[in-house]
Nucleic acid binder design. Sequence first.
DNA 1: GGCTGTATGTTGACGAGGTCAACATGCCCC
DNA 2: GGGGCATGTTGACCTCGTCAACATACAGCC
Lengths: 204, 204
Amino acid sequence: MAERARTYHHGDLRASLVEEAAAMISEGGAASVTMRAIGSRLGVSRGAPYRHFPDKTALLVAVAVAGFKRLNRRLGSGDAGASSSSVERLRRMGEQYVRFALEHPAHYRLMYGKEALARQDQPELRKAAGALLENLIDVIRVHQQRGEIEGGDPRAQAYVAWSAVHGLASLLIERQIDPNVDVDDLIRQTTQTILDGMRDRSQD
Amino acid sequence: MAERARTYHHGDLRASLVEEAAAMISEGGAASVTMRAIGSRLGVSRGAPYRHFPDKTALLVAVAVAGFKRLNRRLGSGDAGASSSSVERLRRMGEQYVRFALEHPAHYRLMYGKEALARQDQPELRKAAGALLENLIDVIRVHQQRGEIEGGDPRAQAYVAWSAVHGLASLLIERQIDPNVDVDDLIRQTTQTILDGMRDRSQD
DNA sequence: GGCTGTATGTTGACGAGGTCAACATGCCCC
DNA sequence: GGGGCATGTTGACCTCGTCAACATACAGCC
């Protein structure tokens, strides 16, 4: 952790704010993040954050962007076993996606649904989410070329796949799914169903 | 509209509060709903709502529940053409689901992601969302018996289908999907992919 | 090394909003 | 027609986001 002073008074307060806000979100949900509390936890005053972010929303956007980058990195790291047979890589991506959401529910929630209107015009956030989509499209394209899935518009297929995992993650996070259901099985079945649905049916 | 006095001073303030809150959510998002504003719009004081709801969250829960009921009714209304061939009914349900979300984005957002922690222990909300699930399970069961989709656990399949449409609805609402994409096509492709994935593969 | 300007951080104040307690009032039932 | 509870009102308090005025530290220049 980069904790020693790097630049001015505090030493990279901006980064600390994002980090601390993320931590607070994990601990007590987005609602527990107040400019006063975060400042206090970092030993600065309530006004300090305003030297780095125009308002609270901007700070949260930064946190959300950081979340997308983390998620992206995690999904990409599966590339190590990219050579594995068939569409295994796609399935693993879906699995990792949902797992990320389950491990960081509040953070994940922030990345999507939070105060969307105000946030959606944030170019950084769009870019971060867009990167996720592009990666997914690339992987889908590869599998299309291998003939493992249907050869339609990869972007549309990416949206379908993204919808499925995001929906599952969302429902799980919001506790809309019976706790007795085996989550692993459900994740598997979801990714499997999508992949089956996308499998090349031109052979039928 | 039941607008004349029915019971006490105001005449069914409780119902009016829910109705008005829903209207405000549609107009200006959930953030625009304040106890003061809603009271003002109904010609009562800021304290009046507290005679009907312990706090603001409870009011919002009531609004969310009303949303689930509306959505449920809409999905069920497709029963008219239930005799239509094949899995057409399931596809139509998915379509109606997403359409509802697009027509009432803020309301839909409230039904799910909002202040989940505080809300998830609300039995009414659970019940309303649960009813949605049960209906879906019933329909799936019917199609299983007709041999149109795979014969696994209908509950798990319902979750998969729900995830897909909820995810798509959510991404659309949060503007995570390229506006140039044809929404109708995307909805169709999503439901189709899920149905294909659920189609009985025992014949393979 | 000392000076000056800007990047940072602090504090006081304001307004919005949720909520509670004390108080007021209407309505039903006996 | 009066009592009592259901409703509604008001004043007050606290939290929170935010801004403006003020304070200070660090950097670079001489």
